[in-house]
Simulated assay, not measured.
Amino acid sequence: MTHAALAITLLATSAAAQETYRFTLTTEGQSSSTFTPLSGDLQLWSGTNTQELVEYTAEHPSYVPPKTWTCNSSFVIVRGIPSGEGHCLMENVDGDRSIIATSVTHVSEGRNAGTWYSIGGTGAQEGVQSRGTYYSIYSPASGRIITTVEGQVTLNE
């Protein structure tokens, strides 16, 4: 019984030391990708992109969001169903860096959407836990990409 009481106390203490809030942001940049259709039922997409923050709104105004994003990802489309992953290295204006993992859930011409979650970071990004959704619009002709990200972040206070 003592172990259970100690665990409950530790959980209550750590919950009080953290704050969770919602945010939205928009990034814009350049993308380079390769699309390889093997057949109508099997296609491969892979790409990299570099984007910068252009808009940010959050419930917690003191948090410094990532300013630059460099992402690598690939996915396959099998009989119309996308499956794939990627990773982004992000850096804020103070030089703190973090990594997120992405997973694609929807693909259509010039667009993709999915989910993401944080893996870890340095400085102010250390210990930050976050997750959410993203939606990207991409122009193959110009390479321009715009991504809208929504999610929640838990900060260590």
Rank of each mutant, 00 (worst) to 15 (best):
M1L: 09
M1S: 12
T2Q: 09
H3K: 15
A5L: 15
L6M: 12
T9N: 14
T9I: 13
L10W: 09
L10C: 10
L11G: 13
L11R: 08
A12I: 13
S14F: 15
A16G: 15
A16W: 11
A17L: 14
A17F: 13
Q18W: 11
Q18R: 08
R22C: 04
R22V: 12
L25C: 07
T26R: 07
T27R: 02
T27K: 02
G29V: 00
G29H: 00
Q30L: 03
Q30A: 00
S31F: 02
S32C: 09
S32T: 07
S33E: 10
T34Y: 14
P37N: 08
P37I: 08
L38T: 10
S39Y: 05
S39C: 03
G40V: 01
Q43K: 07
W45R: 03
G47T: 03
T48W: 14
T48R: 06
E52F: 11
E52T: 13
V54E: 11
A58R: 02
E59A: 08
H60W: 12
P61L: 01
S62P: 11
S62M: 04
V64I: 09
P66M: 05
K67T: 12
T68G: 12
W69S: 11
S73F: 13
S73A: 12
S74H: 07
F75A: 01
V76M: 10
V76Y: 05
R79K: 15
R79C: 11
R79H: 15
G80A: 08
G80S: 04
G80L: 02
P82H: 02
S83T: 07
E85Q: 09
H87F: 13
C88S: 13
L89V: 12
L89H: 12
G95T: 05
G95F: 02
R97Q: 07
S98G: 13
S98H: 12
I99T: 10
I100Q: 06
A101W: 08
T102Y: 05
S103V: 06
V104E: 04
H106C: 06
V107D: 09
V107E: 11
S108L: 02
E109D: 13
G110I: 04
N112A: 01
T115R: 05
T115Q: 08
T115E: 03
W116A: 00
I119S: 10
G120M: 03
G121W: 06
G123I: 01
G123N: 05
G123D: 01
Q125M: 14
Q125L: 10
Q125Y: 10
Q125S: 05
E126P: 07
E126W: 07
Q129L: 14
S130W: 00
R131V: 01
T133R: 13
T133Y: 06
T133D: 04
I137W: 03
S139G: 09
A141K: 11
A141L: 11
A141I: 15
G143F: 00
T148A: 02
V149S: 02
V149Y: 04
G151L: 01
V153W: 02
T154R: 11
N156A: 14
N156I: 11
N156M: 12
N156P: 09
N156S: 14
E157C: 15
